[in-house]
Amino acid sequence: MVKKMIGIEGSFAIAEAVKLARVDAVAAYPITPQTHIVERLAEFVANGELDAEYIPVESEHSAMSACLGTSAVGARTFTATASQGLELMHEVLYVASSMRLPIVMTLANRAISAPLSIWTDHCDAMAVRDCGWIQIFAENAQQAFDLVLCAFRIAETPAVFLPVMVHIDGFYISHTIEPVQLLEQEAVDSFIPEYRHPYPLDPDRPVTMGAFGPPPIYTEAKKAQEVALRASKAVILEVWQEFSLLSGRHYSPVEGYEAGDADVLFLIMGSFSETAMVAIDRMRAKGQKVGLVRLRLWRPFPVQELRQTVGKAWVIIVLDRAISFGGRDPSVLKSRRRFIP
C-alpha cells in the first residue's frame, strides 16, 4: 500500500497526489507567483501519464471560472494558485462554494503586493477566510500530499459537495525538498471512488444552475450553505480516520504537541509549527512547561477540538502570519477569543 520514502519537492508531491486522484481537468495560470504544481501536472498530461484536460487559461479569474465549467459537467477538477492569483479569482471562489462545486485547490500562501513580495505569509489566506470553502492547513510536504488526496474525497462526498482549499506555505513547503511517502495507485483508487455529479449540465436532463436569487431565496440558500459547511466536519473526521488506516498517518482538526500539561501554549497554522516544535523540545529540556496547538482545519472552525486541546493552559501565544490593518487582532487571534474566557 505504502511506497518507500523518497526525497521530493512539496509541489511535486502535490502534483503526484493530484495524478493519483485521477483528476479530469486542471485549469491554471502562472500569475507571479505560481508553483511547480501545475507545471508538473502539465508535464504528466503531455507525457500521457495523466488523462486530463489541461486548460492554460489567460488569468487566474478564468482559471477558477473554467474550473466552474469543468466541475459543473461532472469532471474532477483541480487548480493551484497563490497570493495575487487568489486575489484575482476572489469573486469566483464564492460562486464555487455557493454553487456547491467540489473543486480542489492548493494555495501556496504568500504575501500580497505592494510592495511586490513572493515570500510566505497568510494575508492571502485570510482575505478568503469567509468564501465558504473548506480550508485545511498543511505543515510539510507529506501532509500536503496526504491532505490533497483527502480533499478530493471530502469535497466529493454527497453530503458535503463543497470546494476544498489546502493551504501550503509558499517556499517552505512548495519549493523545499522533503522526505515523502507516496501511495500506490490501487490504494488511492480504493480510497477515492469514481466521481459522479448528481445533476451535471447534461442535455438529457436540463438543469438551470446559478439562477438569480431574490432576497427570501438568497437567505435560504446562504443558510443552507452555512449548515452544510459546518456539517462537513463529521465527514472530514471520517475521511481522515479512513486515510489513517490506509497510510498510517493520522490527522485531526486540531493537533497538540506537548500540550497536555502545558502552562504556555503556542497556537500556530502552517509550516512554522515544525519550527516551534524544535523550540518547544529545547524549552522542555530546560523544564519549561510549554506546548503547541496546531490548527489544521481552518474552516469549518473546530471550536470544540480547540477548547479540548487548549486544556488548562493559562497563556496562549498566537503567532499569526497575517496583518489586519486597523483591526484589533489578526485573524487567528480573533477566532481564539471565541472559545477562551
Partner: peptide
Amino acid sequence: EVPWIHTLFENAAAVASGIEAGIKVL
C-alpha cells in the same frame, strides 16, 4: 429548457471553455 449555467459577469467564455474541456475528457 436546455442545460444552462450562470456564474459571473466577465467569465462566460472561461466557463464555456471549462464545459467544453470537461465534456471532452469525460
